[in-house]
Amino acid sequence: MTVTPADPDVRHFRTLFISDVHLGSKAAKADFLLDFLRHHEAETIVLVGDIVDGWRLKRNWYWPQAFNDVTQKILRKARKGTRIVYIPGNHDEFLRDFPGTHFGGVEVAERMIHEGADGRRYLVLHGDEFDVVVRHARMVAYLGDWAYDAAIAINVVFAAIRRRLGLPYWSFSSWAKQQVKSAVNFIGEFQKVVVEEARRNNADGVICGHIHHAVITEIDGIRYINSGDWVESCTAIAEHHDGEMELITWQTMASRPAAVLAVSHQMPAIETRERVGAEAA
């Protein structure tokens, strides 16, 4: 009997954390995410909110085949034995009425405690409940959403030009956000508040999304991890089987097997990875 070896181009993890895909928005990088899912497997995949963008779908229905492909890929992984946990965010808040419900093998939860392979306990939640604008000024949030759409529209132009030049994807909106002092201050305050919530839950760390700013860092003795998004940065968090956490940026479609090989995050790359070991603190 011939034994077929495992696909060397597919990386295997204990857990993957993905958030802020915004299916329903023209800005969603569904093709990048689908390519990422083809090259990454995990025992558990946690969808950390805003996977579907209900706000935009209410305004203007947009659902191309690529969005179906991503949905079917996730459901296919569930059928093959991957545990899929969906933690709704503010853009897909309609799912918050169904905690504990299973849809096609996908489990819905308001939040969860993730036990890392290294023994660390992580509070996992989307994070919008700590965004004062979203909680207390919904109309202001919607207006900000429209302004964000304008920045994303500029992204589309930049992306088209860079593709023609053979350059990897680069996010104008993400860059612009980092140049605005108020946005930088908001990110810092958001991180502090979420870290305090993790501390109140006796957790060693927190994994969230919402603000589209991917990072793995330590804040006041608590590990803060944000999985980023698939609108601007195309990022995900991967937990290795020893508990090590890795931030993966999927910059360019992997058109050839070598595209998924590890490269330094300081170099232009098809995939960039930042790894934080279990011993780091």
Results as ranks from 00 to 15, higher is better:
L16I: 09
K29S: 13
R14D: 14
F32Y: 03
F17L: 15
K29H: 14
R14K: 11
A27P: 01
R38G: 05
I18G: 04
K29V: 10
P8H: 04
H12G: 02
R11D: 12
R14N: 11
H22R: 15
F36E: 01
R11H: 12
A27Q: 04
I18C: 08
L37V: 03
S19C: 11
V10A: 12
F36P: 01
V10G: 12
L34R: 10
S19V: 05
L16N: 06
F32H: 05
D9M: 07
D35I: 13
R38Y: 08
H12L: 08
L34C: 09
V21K: 02
L23D: 03
L37F: 04
L37Q: 04
A30L: 09
F17K: 14
H39N: 08
V21S: 00
R14C: 06
F32V: 02
D20I: 05
F36T: 07
I18Q: 09
H39I: 05
F32S: 02
I18Y: 05
R14L: 03
H12W: 06
S25Q: 12
F17P: 11
F13G: 06
V10C: 13
K26H: 09
L33W: 01
A28N: 10
R38V: 03
L37H: 02
L23N: 03
L16G: 02
D20Q: 05
V10P: 10
P8A: 10
G24M: 07
F17Y: 15
D20C: 03
P8E: 09
T15H: 13
H12D: 13
I18D: 04
A28G: 11
L23Y: 07
F13N: 05
V21A: 00
K29C: 14
L23G: 03
H22C: 14
A28D: 08
H22P: 13
D20L: 03
D20T: 05
